[in-house]
Amino acid sequence: MKKVFERTKGLSDAHFTFCPGCTHGTIMRLIAEVMEELNIIEDTIGVSPVGCAGFCQDFFTCDFVGAAHGRAQAVATGIKRSLPDKMVFTYQGDGDIAAIGTQHAIHSAARGERITSIMVNNAIYGMTGGQMAPTTLEGMKTTTSPFGRDPVSAGMPMDFPKIIANIPGAVYVASVSVDSPKNINKAKKAIKKAFQVQQAGLGFALVSILSTCPTNWGMSPVDSLDWLRENMLPIYELGVLKEIEEVKNL
């Protein structure tokens, strides 16, 4: 029989351990496909965070380093400065990159660090059981905002990629989603671009990806996708937020 589809070489045959319907798996597959298409699996070192995102180190087929919570971009900086010819990327949750790791995110962008960062925004702390994240929506119930996020005491949700896009060293910043086939295709294009930016040595690249957490949102996988579309898309504007000329020409 003719083989018409097979697993990308960027992913191992280990079974995903994510909850049913969690889109972490979708995002990892896109990254793996991009690594295969660019033929960089053997030249890439990934940096995993702490969070559900952290399990990625077991699934990708490239080398991996596990960082402390929030430190992935500092670790990636160390790797890249030591091995400038290798490809280095971080895969981080919204809490990891936009709360505890904020200083590293801002300053790896400011330095124009030649790394690629993927931020998975599920508006919650998934791994620790659904606490409030900087990205948690106004009024959204989490275990640490049981009556809904109150902007008076907890502030408004932070649109992190927009903040990064303001930094000169960030040369490519995109905000995408994996809620539909159309958006998944766009997400893959953005991820690919973010790796190509690094190959070309142009500067720091970030792709923020809206993702679901059915378990901690307390919804079915299908309802989660609807909820993401109805509630997250209006707040987190999708699209290429920043792209310098050299990146456009890639």
Binding site: V47, V65, A67, A68, R71, A74, V75, A76, T77, G78, I79, K80, R81, S82, Q103, H104, I106, H107, R111
Partner: peptide
């Protein structure tokens, strides 16, 4: 490299040492 702070610096060391 002058890092953003000592937390950054030690984690850069960690990455480079790897």
């Amino acid at each position: 490299l002058q890092a953003e702070d000592e937390i950054g610096a030690i984690n850069m060391c960690y990455g480079a040492a790897c």
